[in-house]
Amino acid sequence: MGMPNRKYADGEVVMGRWPGSVLYYEVQVTSYDDASHLYTVKYKDGTELALKESDIRLQS
């Protein structure tokens, strides 16, 4: 078993793309699913969504 190939840690605050949009919002990573390679993130309004790594970026 190798290390999970994840870029962002639980609790890390990053920018997540809103689905169907080009806009990124501040989100907190809450979990990562090794099987689906999706991150569960929480937006400031409390919305929780699963995002692909390509829809997440570090805060500038």
Rank of each mutant, 00 (worst) to 15 (best):
M1Q: 15
M1T: 15
M1L: 12
M1I: 14
M1Y: 02
G2S: 06
G2V: 08
G2M: 06
G2T: 08
M3P: 15
P4G: 15
N5S: 14
N5E: 14
N5D: 13
N5C: 14
R6E: 02
R6F: 03
R6G: 03
R6V: 03
R6C: 04
Y8D: 01
Y8P: 02
Y8H: 04
Y8C: 02
A9P: 07
A9R: 11
A9V: 08
A9M: 12
A9W: 08
A9Y: 10
D10K: 05
D10N: 11
D10W: 03
D10F: 04
G11E: 03
G11D: 04
G11A: 04
G11V: 01
G11N: 06
E12M: 14
E12W: 06
E12S: 10
V13I: 15
V13Q: 07
V13D: 04
V14R: 01
V14H: 02
M15R: 06
M15G: 03
M15E: 09
M15P: 01
M15A: 05
G16S: 06
G16H: 03
G16F: 09
G16A: 15
G16I: 15
R17L: 08
R17I: 06
R17P: 05
R17W: 03
R17D: 00
R17G: 02
W18V: 08
W18H: 07
W18R: 11
W18F: 11
P19Q: 05
P19R: 14
P19V: 03
P19I: 03
P19L: 05
P19M: 06
G20Y: 07
G20N: 09
G20D: 07
G20K: 05
S21W: 03
S21K: 07
V22K: 13
V22W: 13
L23R: 11
L23T: 12
L23P: 02
L23F: 14
Y24F: 12
Y24K: 01
Y24D: 02
Y24E: 05
Y24M: 06
Y25R: 11
Y25N: 04
E26N: 05
E26W: 11
V27C: 15
V27A: 12
V27H: 01
V27R: 00
V27D: 00
V27G: 10
Q28R: 13
Q28L: 14
V29F: 00
V29I: 14
V29D: 00
V29R: 00
V29P: 00
V29Y: 00
V29W: 01
V29S: 00
T30C: 12
T30H: 08
T30W: 08
T30P: 00
T30A: 09
S31G: 14
S31P: 00
S31V: 03
S31I: 02
S31R: 09
Y32D: 00
Y32E: 00
D33C: 06
D33I: 03
D33F: 02
D33M: 03
D33E: 04
D33Q: 03
D33G: 02
D33S: 08
D33N: 09
D33K: 02
D34H: 10
D34F: 09
D34A: 11
D34S: 11
A35T: 12
A35L: 11
A35P: 04
S36N: 11
S36T: 14
H37A: 14
H37G: 15
H37T: 09
H37D: 11
L38Q: 07
L38H: 06
L38S: 07
Y39C: 01
Y39K: 00
Y39M: 01
T40W: 14
T40F: 11
T40L: 13
T40H: 11
T40V: 10
T40R: 11
V41M: 02
K42T: 10
K42N: 04
K42L: 12
K42P: 00
K42S: 07
K44F: 10
K44P: 11
K44G: 08
D45A: 03
D45W: 10
D45C: 09
G46R: 04
G46L: 04
G46N: 06
G46K: 04
G46S: 05
T47W: 07
T47A: 06
T47Y: 07
E48G: 03
E48R: 08
E48L: 14
L49E: 03
L49I: 13
A50T: 14
A50C: 14
A50D: 09
A50Q: 15
A50K: 15
A50V: 14
A50E: 13
A50S: 13
L51H: 01
L51W: 03
L51N: 00
L51V: 06
L51S: 01
K52E: 11
K52I: 08
K52F: 11
K52Y: 12
K52S: 12
E53R: 02
E53I: 04
E53L: 04
S54P: 05
S54A: 11
D55Q: 07
D55F: 05
I56L: 12
I56G: 01
I56V: 04
I56Q: 01
I56H: 01
R57Y: 12
R57T: 09
R57E: 09
R57Q: 11
L58T: 14
Q59W: 14
Q59R: 14
Q59V: 14
Q59F: 15
Q59A: 14
Q59M: 15
Q59P: 15
S60G: 13
S60D: 13
S60A: 12
